[in-house]
Computed example of a mutant assay.
Amino acid sequence: MSLLTMGDEHRGTIENISTFDPKRFRCRVHEYVPHDPLIEPYIRGCGFGNLLNIVSYSVDYKFILALLERWRPETHTFHLPIGECTVTLEDVYMLLGLRIDGKAVNGKVNHVNDICNELLGAPLLDDEPEGDTSSQARGQGINLKYLRQYYNSIVLSEDSTEYEKIIKAQCYIMILFGNFLFPESTGNSVNIMYLPLLRNINKVNTYSWGSAVLAHLYSALCKNAKKNTCTFFSCAYLLQAWGWSRMPSLAPENERPFAFPFATK
C-alpha cells in the first residue's frame, strides 16, 4: 500500500465515488463504419482482419467507470478484492487478434498536406497557421467526419485499379484508428502520425499495433484515474471485452462460449 501515493486525487476513494455524477462520464465511442468488401483482402493483409468481425462499437459506460475506480496508475494494475490484475499484451492478441511484436508504432505528429495528397488522394489535413505552437504540441489530426465522407465517395467496382483500392483501404484503416483503436480526446479527429506508416500497404503488418493499442489504453486509464475526469478516450471495447472475459460473472448472458479472438460475430 505504500506504493499508492495518489491519495485523494484518485477517483476510487469513497468520497470521490459518492460525489461523482456517473451521468457526466462518457467514452469516445463512434458509429461503426462498414468496410467495402473489395478492400477486405488489404485490411486482412495489414493485420486488422479480426476487427472486421466487429459490427458494433457500443460499450457499457458504467462498467468502464467501475473499472477506472479500481485502476491504480502507480502500479498499472486494477486493485480488486481478490487481488491485482491488468490488461496484458496476450489479452490484446487474444481479444483483438492484433500483432504484439514487430516494429514500434511511432513517428512525427506534424505533416503538411502533401502526405494526405500522396497517400489518400485528397488534402484532408488542415494546415496550421505558421507559428502556431499549440497545435504542434498536441499533434495534427485529420477530421473524422471529412475522412468518412471522402471514404464513402470512393466507389469501387471489379474494374477499379489496385491504386484506387489501396487508397480506400488506407482511408478505412485511418477511420479504424480514429473511431476504434486510437480515439482522440476531442473525438473528432485521428492523429496524422499513423498515416505515413501506411505508405507501403505490404509492410503495415510489420508494426506492433497491439502494443500501441495497449500503451494508448494504459495512458487513458492513468489519466481517467484522477477524480472529476469525465471522458475516456481509448479502445474502450478492448477494456470491456477484457473485463467480460476475465470476470464472466459481470458479463451479459451469452449462451455461446467465448471464442478467441473475441471479436466474433
Rank of each mutant, 00 (worst) to 15 (best):
N205E: 08
F260T: 09
G141P: 02
E74S: 15
T206A: 03
E74W: 05
F177I: 03
L4G: 03
T133K: 06
F182M: 10
L52N: 08
E90V: 04
L96T: 09
C222K: 12
S219D: 14
L65V: 02
V59A: 11
E164L: 04
K23G: 05
Q136Y: 07
T13F: 01
N188Y: 15
V87W: 08
K23R: 09
N143Q: 03
I192M: 14
V204H: 03
R256K: 15
T133P: 00
A251N: 11
E31S: 15
E40Q: 12
G141H: 03
I175S: 05
D101I: 08
T77C: 09
K223G: 12
I100R: 05
R256I: 09
I175W: 06
R44A: 09
M193D: 11
S249R: 14
A66H: 00
A251D: 11
I192S: 10
A225R: 01
S185V: 13
C116D: 09
E74Y: 06
H76C: 06
G187W: 12
V87H: 05
T86D: 06
T75L: 08
L65G: 01
S153I: 00
Y93W: 11
L38Q: 09
F182W: 04
M174C: 12
T88H: 00
V155M: 10
K103L: 13
A251G: 12
P257A: 04
S2P: 10
F233K: 01
D132G: 04
Y207I: 09
P37I: 06
P257G: 08
N202L: 07
R99Y: 06
I100P: 04
T88K: 01
T229W: 05
P261N: 07
L65E: 03
F20L: 10
C230T: 14
R24D: 04
F25K: 05
Y218K: 14
G243V: 00
E162F: 01
